[in-house]
Design a protein around this nucleic acid. Structure first.
Lengths: 132, 132
DNA sequence: TAATATTTGCAACATTGTTGCATTTGAAAT
DNA sequence: ATTTCAAATGCAACAATGTTGCAAATATTA
């Protein structure tokens, strides 16, 4: 969907930074890091503005954050989801690319007594089809 | 096992920082952050030394790093493992405690064509038995 | 005890992220 | 079209986590 529409639907102001982020990630078709996004954007935004935009867009489930090995952070469109069916992410250790996968079933029958599960996060590492 | 023995077994020099890290995490019985470790240690070590010790101990599979939501980093004893049976971690969103779980089966039958899986990481979030 | 390869501490720097505050701006109301 | 004002921005400063280079200190081995 058009970035403008997405923002309007959520009653968010239309700003260059927000629009740009959505558009760039949409066009790339895969999660991108802050730098990857910045390099693809025409406008020049302060880092604070970026982070505030990321935060807002995450709060409205317009995008979600993925962290691999800490220090490698990328952002993807859509909301991340929960519980036993986790929205998983694939990380290619060769090209550093990320890919959102369909939910991967996780067997939580072995959880210890008294623990309540609210959400699961899965990072699957390996080689993507390009790098294999 | 005694910290000294662990180090000796891997032909690592016995230093206060390495010994202390192993001992403190062993005693705590759960993964600890850099600060939690520092506060429990008697000696006062430079942050660089800490990180180099963590690195070495990880290379020798004496401990492993766990990252939650990026920015929350903790260290645990033992090696983290791989593939379809992932050594999972439970994160309590109330007390911020971490717990290493038994391997949790992950169904990777839905992986796209041409992708090679080398390792999976799972963070399960929720409430621990104390906080429930 | 002496030799030496490792480890340490310090300084500097990198990345990711947040907060406070004054200024600017998008969009609704007039 | 202009006014209004809450929301967004830019800047400066700071925090957490982590790395690199280099000289000084130290653990083990001979």
């Amino acid at each position: 969907m058009e970035p403008v529409k997405v923002l309007h639907e959520h009653n968010l102001k239309r700003t260059g930074c927000r629009e740009g982020i959505i558009e760039v990630i949409t066009r790339a078709g895969q999660p991108l890091s802050e730098n990857e996004i910045r390099n693809r954007l025409s406008g020049n935004f302060d880092r604070t503005t970026f982070y505030r935009s990321f935060k807002t867009l995450q709060e409205y489930n317009i995008l979600h954050k993925i962290v691999v090995d800490n220090q490698l952070v990328k952002y993807a469109l859509g909301k991340s989801d929960t519980k036993t069916n986790s929205h998983a992410h694939f990380y290619c250790t060769s090209c550093n690319g990320l890919k959102c996968l369909d939910p991967v079933p996780v067997d939580l029958s072995g959880m210890p007594e008294g623990y309540v599960v609210e959400e699961t996060e899965i990072i699957i590492k390996g080689l993507c089809s390009q790098c294999h």
